[in-house]
């Protein structure tokens, strides 16, 4: 046999064919139907909004990390994912300059200050969204009607407001979301409209059905921990069913709760962010339950119509505590050493 240079490396010599960049890319790909539907419902404005936040996130990631690391980091697709997710939480007519600021904040404050990918305590997209909500409370609750004529040729006017100069007029508020309609006026929305997206709301809040499909795809490919959406939605469904059966007039129906607002998007795509959710399986179940419980509490008894964002951010803060405090069984440890937890 010919002599050849053999390569030496340490075992294992096999590798599961699933890399972090592949996972992130697939999450982005699975959101394409949701994005396409948003563009269908809200027109070119939606496309502009998604492009703006994504560009802001990618540019920020690149600039903050310098040339070398920035290039490497962009290849992991996580900045793109943050940009897309952020856009999906915003209302269609949201001013683009604000969206750009939101994208920068998401990466800078949500990720970079913690030390980059893997170190962040909170889901970066939600950090961006929370900051925008605090800074621009009016713009972020200004909803436009879905499926308006001319949506493919005209941009929603509020999108093009000039930074800091034009205030959003409060009377621009049109098309209340299903949740606010119920909360403040006790108007219920037809369930099929909710599931298939013919209501007003944020870009990615309207079509629950497509989000479920994306989630099932990722769950089957093991790129998402199915326990999180199942845990959150299960908790919400159980609690609201109990409430609804006790008093159907005061409380919204479980269907309405499950399919409206950001719950689907949050449960499938935000709470499942691996970095900001607990490591252990028991931790994951507790985390999901707490988020579900908080969603119900805020939506029904809190002052806001929507509570998914705060519920998930709270869950994120809880994750490291769960990792530290859940006693964990290690093989072959006597019971007195067992309490040395693993995190």
């Amino acid at each position: 046999m010919k002599d050849q240079t053999l390569q030496i490396r340490t075992s294992p010599h096999l590798k599961r064919p699933m890399a972090t960049n592949t996972i992130m890319l697939h999450v982005v790909l699975s959101l394409i139907p949701v994005m396409a539907f948003a563009v269908y419902s809200f027109g070119i404005t939606a496309l502009l909004l998604i492009t703006t936040t994504t560009a802001a996130c990618v540019a920020t990631e690149y600039l903050l990390n310098g040339k070398e690391r920035g290039k490497q980091n962009i290849k992991d697709w996580s900045a793109v994912l943050t940009g897309v997710l952020l856009a999906l939480t915003l209302p269609p007519g949201f001013p683009l300059w604000m969206a750009f600021v939101g994208g920068m904040i998401a990466i800078a404050l949500g990720k970079f200050v913690f030390g980059g990918l893997g170190q962040n305590l909170f889901n970066p997209a939600l950090v961006g969204r929370a900051m925008l909500q605090a800074a621009f409370p009016v713009a972020i609750t200004t909803w436009t009607e879905t499926l308006v004529n001319g949506r493919f040729s005209h941009i929603i006017p509020s999108s093009l407001t000039i930074p800091f100069l034009e205030p959003i007029k409060a009377d621009a508020v049109s098309g209340a979301t299903p949740l606010s309609a119920f909360k403040f006026d006790k108007v219920s929305t037809e369930i099929q409209d909710l599931a298939f997206g013919f209501t007003s709301g944020s870009l990615g809040e309207t079509c629950a059905f497509l989000i479920v499909i994306g989630g099932v795809y990722l769950g089957v490919r093991k790129m998402l921990n199915w326990r999180i959406p199942v845990g959150i939605l299960g908790t919400v469904a159980t609690l609201t069913t109990i409430l609804y059966l006790s008093d159907p007039v005061t409380y919204p129906s479980p269907w309405m709760m499950l399919f409206s607002g950001g719950l689907m998007l949050g449960a499938v795509y935000m709470a499942t962010d691996m970095v900001s959710s607990p490591l252990s399986t028991i931790g994951i179940w507790i985390y999901s339950f707490v988020i579900g419980l908080l969603v119900v509490l805020i939506r029904i008894w809190g002052g806001l119509p929507e509570g998914v964002m705060y519920a998930i951010l709270f869950g994120n803060a809880l994750a490291p505590i769960l990792d530290k405090s859940i006693p964990h069984r290690i093989y072959g440890m006597s019971s007195k050493n067992q309490n040395k937890n693993r995190a």
């Binding site: 960049n21 990918l117 921990n225 959710s277 399986t281």
Partner: peptide
């Protein structure tokens, strides 16, 4: 051969915890 695979930061996916037969925490 597994040459030149880019290394990324730990994304806390928990896969190593599930894989470890002794239930150690390889991530940590």
């Amino acid at each position: 051969t597994l040459e030149n695979q880019a290394e990324y930061a730990c994304i806390r996916c928990g896969a190593c915890l599930d894989a470890c037969p002794l239930s150690l925490n390889p991530s940590q």
